[in-house]
Design a protein around this nucleic acid. Sequence first.
DNA 1: GGGTGTGGAGAACGCGCGTTCTCCTCTTCC
DNA 2: GGAAGAGGAGAACGCGCGTTCTCCACACCC
Lengths: 186, 186
Amino acid sequence: MISAETAELRILDAAEALFYGRGIQAVGMDEIRSASGVSLKRLYRLFPSKGDLVQAYLRRRDVRWRQKLAAYADARDTPEERILAVFDWLHEWFGEPEFRGCAFSNSFGELGATSSAVAETARAHKEAFVRYLAELTAAAGKPASLADHLALLAEGAITTAAITGSAEPARRAGEAARVLLKAAQR
Amino acid sequence: MISAETAELRILDAAEALFYGRGIQAVGMDEIRSASGVSLKRLYRLFPSKGDLVQAYLRRRDVRWRQKLAAYADARDTPEERILAVFDWLHEWFGEPEFRGCAFSNSFGELGATSSAVAETARAHKEAFVRYLAELTAAAGKPASLADHLALLAEGAITTAAITGSAEPARRAGEAARVLLKAAQR
DNA sequence: GGGTGTGGAGAACGCGCGTTCTCCTCTTCC
DNA sequence: GGAAGAGGAGAACGCGCGTTCTCCACACCC
């Protein structure tokens, strides 16, 4: 018998792959059961409803996504380089075969009007992202408005990359970010 | 008895309000019947499946959206003003009470992985938008790359406005667009 | 060893939805 | 007036899904 922690991990891994890859409403609980190998009974003990599982999926993805981004960008030497590294990281992400856009924008589009929990989680994710960019721009001695502008570029790149199926938008956004960065008074 | 054209209009109006406002999978055909006042039988004669209705909804919205944008921007006097007017128009759009983000990004997030027709329609919409921006930047004697950068800003503004529920992202995107416009060599 | 309980497999239930069918009404043409 | 057909209302059907329940196997404790 596998431990409760392992079961939870397996469920979340399966849920993330399926929800992100095909959309939340397109995936049934039975499919998560087969993919995770955890029985429905146990699944429902750990996550009392599909909504709870969706929330857990989104929350874990939020944390991991921002951690990966920060780990990548913070490795650069200067504040300016860290800012531009965000767009390099996006380019890597867009190149992953499973890439299908922003999980939060996607679930917001799908369920935001129906579920206030999903809407709130998406809002919190975007807010945390722009907060991180604001840290980077502040460290570079740039105004906070630059962080908003960069966030819009990144957001647009994610959506465009998803819909066009190309990683190029990350490069285009990086070019624009470089211009804005240079133009921003310090 | 109402004419076939009127019935089609009523159906498309109801479908647009419901699909856009609540998401495609969250709206049943019965609801479109009640909202449009057109019987199911007739509905299915005009649109043989829900998928056909979704495609008709998206195609009509694509044309109308771009027409409204162009009508607004083309009224400005100079090429530069027309470019910046795009972001003013976004601000007006974001302020509408029914605004809930980009219908195409939303349906792509919801059904893009399942329905290649929806994915293709979303791609075509985004492509047409960037083509329009390219016309504007070309008329201003700016490079085509500027159009890509502006498109990313606009795209990001739409998503951010939807998720945060604020019209401000249009202003922020307009600020960044002004900087990019000034910096672009003519 | 026998009771007790935990867990797995999957059937069952209830509901909603896309789609089709039935029945009735009204109009139109001879 | 009556036959015929079109159209509307909504019931019916089939299916999928979220959730719960049943039945059985197996481990653990006295």
